[in-house]
């Protein structure tokens, strides 16, 4: 029970994928202009991250390790994640058009999101069990959600603020992201 709690807190706050590991920065900067789109992206990432980690765990345990081809980990995982996202997108379009509309373009964009691959590899490196791996992935997704929603909330306010023209959009967003990451540094060292 203690381990479960530690993994959860560590994945969400302390080793946040964005602020501590610097994974998935591209969607973090790209789709954080409005809270609605940011939460859509966060949901999609959490969903795919959990799913992908479960499948890559099985792949690792029953294919890579028995055949001693662990060095193919990266390319295999990318393959699996990319096709998984495609299948999920196709299925979602039919099963739940509402959710498909809500996630929109973010779902296919996740194919190239390094946070997904990063979390899948990390959970294997940390030698987690299946249950803990999935939990770790889900909480990492929540951490991503948290980061991108906080950030988009700030950016919505910044848009109304009177800032110099040369700092508008990306420059001020990068500065904000830096300050936000520093704020999250306060959590570091909480769990050994």
């Amino acid at each position: 029970m203690k381990e479960v709690l530690l993994v959860m807190v560590s994945a969400i706050f302390i080793n946040n994928v964005i602020f501590a590991r610097f994974l998935g920065i591209c969607p973090y900067m790209g789709v954080s202009k409005r809270i609605s789109t940011a939460s859509g992206m966060g949901m999609a990432v959490t969903f795919v991250m959990t799913f992908a980690t479960a499948i890559t765990f099985i792949l690792n345990k029953f294919v890579l390790i028995p055949f001693h081809i662990e060095y193919l980990q990266t390319i295999m995982f990318i393959l699996v994640i990319a096709s998984l996202v495609q299948i999920v997108e196709i299925a979602l379009k039919k099963i739940s058009p509402a959710l498909y509309q809500a996630l929109g373009i973010f779902l296919p964009l996740i194919t190239t999101n390094c946070a997904i691959l990063g979390v899948a590899i990390l959970s294997i490196q940390n030698e987690y069990s299946f249950f803990i791996s999935v939990l770790f992935a889900f909480c990492s997704g929540l951490g991503f959600c948290l980061a991108i929603i906080i950030f988009s909330g700030i950016r919505e306010r910044i848009e109304d603020a009177d800032i110099p023209e040369c700092f508008k959009n990306i420059p001020i967003a990068l500065i904000t992201a830096g300050i936000l990451a520093m704020a999250f540094m306060g959590f570091s060292g909480l769990v050994k």
């Binding site: 055949f67 081809i69 193919l72 295999m76 393959l79 096709s83 299948i87 196709i90 379009k93 039919k94």
Partner: peptide
């Protein structure tokens, strides 16, 4: 040979899955 075979097999299976999914869930 083993990695080549396994990677090819995986690619083939995944490709097949996508094909099936697009057929089954065609909109």
């Amino acid at each position: 040979l083993t990695p080549i075979l396994i990677l090819s097999a995986l690619t083939f299976i995944l490709g097949l899955c996508i094909l099936l999914a697009s057929k089954k869930f065609h909109v």
